[in-house]
Nucleic acid binder design. Structure first.
Lengths: 108, 108
DNA sequence: AATATTGTTCGTAATTTTACGAACTCAAAA
DNA sequence: TTTTGAGTTCGTAAAATTACGAACAATATT
């Protein structure tokens, strides 16, 4: 079965979805989305987990492309990655919009 | 740190996202979304993985509430779970819509 | 130069995920 | 009643995820 693989879109949206697939990472994303940017410490304060774990989650979000971080003095500032946020937004929107139940307008 | 947990919304969207966090499951969802319903065999044909694995992925999608399956003679028919699809659609839409970069309309 | 402060990285353990073949179930057909 | 067809479940192995404390960087402050 070498032939049938997944489409790039499927891989891409799965990648975003996987990054969003943990409540801590959703909390981080929501927190960042509401204020655009903030420091590691602010994020850590919001979460019930150790800083090492927060750092790990941030790394995954960064690798998925949903956020970005830059060093600022002794602190690190994290922000939403706007380009990719837009792409993700589109992918999910298209994905949910494609269901037959939307086309048949049976869901409202 | 017993106090700070995650919100139900965060748990909920993370649950959906996690289910969508694998290309095979995205492929299944897209396939189902396009035709509303179909049999296990049709899904299996679309994917480059063993039937046991397909079955496992279907189980996870079912447990996340995104699809539902019902036995029909010797076959099993799988469909999108429309109620939850709608809920997921809303959750993701609200989530991506909340970013400051949307409110500032800097993304278009 | 010594010392905080702020995060990251390392090492590690426990759990979950992913994947497969083999064995199994269960209804329908022969 | 045996057999076939369609899927699920089981057992299992390899890999990835999640979480933590301890150790480590790197910059500011004293």
């Amino acid at each position: 079965m070498e032939s049938k693989k997944y489409t790039l879109e499927q891989e891409q949206i799965a990648r975003f979805a996987k990054a969003m697939g943990h409540p801590a990472r959703m909390a981080i994303l929501e927190f960042l989305a509401r204020q655009d940017c903030c420091f590691f410490g602010d994020i850590h304060e919001e979460l019930p987990i150790a800083k090492a774990t927060v750092s790990q989650h941030l790394k995954e979000l960064k690798e998925a492309g949903l956020i970005q971080g830059e060093i600022e003095a002794p602190k690190v500032k994290y922000c939403i990655n706007r380009e990719n946020w837009k792409i993700a937004s589109m992918l999910f929107s298209n994905f949910f919009g494609q269901c037959v139940c939307k086309r048949e307008s049976c869901c409202e």
